[in-house]
Design a protein around this nucleic acid. Structure first.
Lengths: 189, 189
DNA sequence: TTATTAAACTAACGCTTGTTAGTTTATTTG
DNA sequence: CAAATAAACTAACAAGCGTTAGTTTAATAA
């Protein structure tokens, strides 16, 4: 029986290298060296370089989709839903920041799954936007440009993969509260 | 006498391709095809692929450095300085969004200039942080986590290159006001 | 007209890429 | 012990990479 853990080691190591230099700049020989083996040996565990990227990205994309479904269908005010989105990003990212780098920066190198990924991302953004618009309708959120709000929140949440690993001893609950406060209430006194 | 404009066409075309696929995934043959010539012909105008990347990134990095110096030395409140930083990012990015993609995503593929770039970026972040901290001291800005504030603002500003080209008919002054409002006052009513 | 020059071309180079085939080694299972 | 299996290895491949050398073409300057 194949030990699935060796493959996962390879995928995790690949994610780390992809974060540092991007998918295209990482060679199978780089990856092999990082694993302490020869490049050809990698193929006892994985099908192709492409397949590694797919493994990294698609599972994360589906985690976000699933999380968003739960938030959408929850009984909560719009502001509470936004806080849950912040928390979702922080929890997924802190578990796998390297993979999040690929999700953000290397999705265009997907092949068969690229269309699927783009679809999931668009649906996610649409759900996010709708929550903001509902908040505007219900007078919870300012009636200014909702596209700017969506853009600003998403940009920040998508950059978490760069920031979370630098603050190792940071409690994710505290971060979630701090970040929600800044994103929702601003910085002005 | 060499016409400098042909080289600039190549650099601009390269920036566009680098934005779409990243520096490493763009070959000189891709770039040549986009210019309607053969790969070897590119070398009548440029020294190397590396050199194109350097041209794109370093000039932009120095624009930011220069802009930050002006803001630092200006007579303005901390909040006003932050608004000027927002405006700086929007103006530089709207002039050259493709180049900003390389600045954000391909800087690690610089060679001799990588250290210089990293230095400029650190100084920029330090100046940014100091403006926030001064605002906290002078009671203009909330006394919550200033690292979170810096991270959130910078993440949003660094993502502008993805967003500005999608909103072509957008007035940069209006955008600057809207974005400053969201970043500084939040979205909460 | 002749000389100069900008900007394209063809052909090729040495190197690196992802990947395959076939083999060896060491551990686990019947 | 024998058989099976996981996981490494060596060697090699065809294709693609950035880049160079030398040449041709067409427009401009003397």
């Amino acid at each position: 029986m194949k030990t699935e853990t060796r493959k996962e080691e390879i995928v995790q190591t690949a994610a780390k290298l992809f974060k540092e230099k991007g998918y295209s700049a990482v060679t199978m020989r780089d990856l092999a060296k990082a694993m302490g083996i020869k490049a050809a040996s990698l193929y006892n565990h994985i099908n192709s370089k492409q397949d590694i990227l797919k493994d990294i990205i698609i599972s994360l994309a589906e985690e976000f989709t699933q999380g968003m479904q739960l938030i959408k269908s929850s009984e909560a005010t719009s502001i509470e839903k936004l806080k849950k989105i912040v928390s979702l990003h922080i929890h997924i990212t802190s578990r796998n920041p390297n993979g999040m780098a690929s999700l953000n920066n290397d999705w265009m190198h997907l092949e068969e799954q690229k269309h699927h990924y783009i679809q999931l991302r668009h649906r996610y953004e649409d759900d996010f936007r709708q929550i903001i618009n509902e908040g505007i309708k219900s007078n919870e959120i300012k009636k200014s440009n909702s596209d700017v709000m969506l853009f600003s929140m998403l940009s920040t949440l998508r950059s978490l993969y760069l920031w979370i690993p630098k603050k190792e001893d940071l409690n994710t609950e505290t971060l979630s509260q701090n970040l929600s406060e800044v994103l929702i209430d601003g910085i002005n006194k």
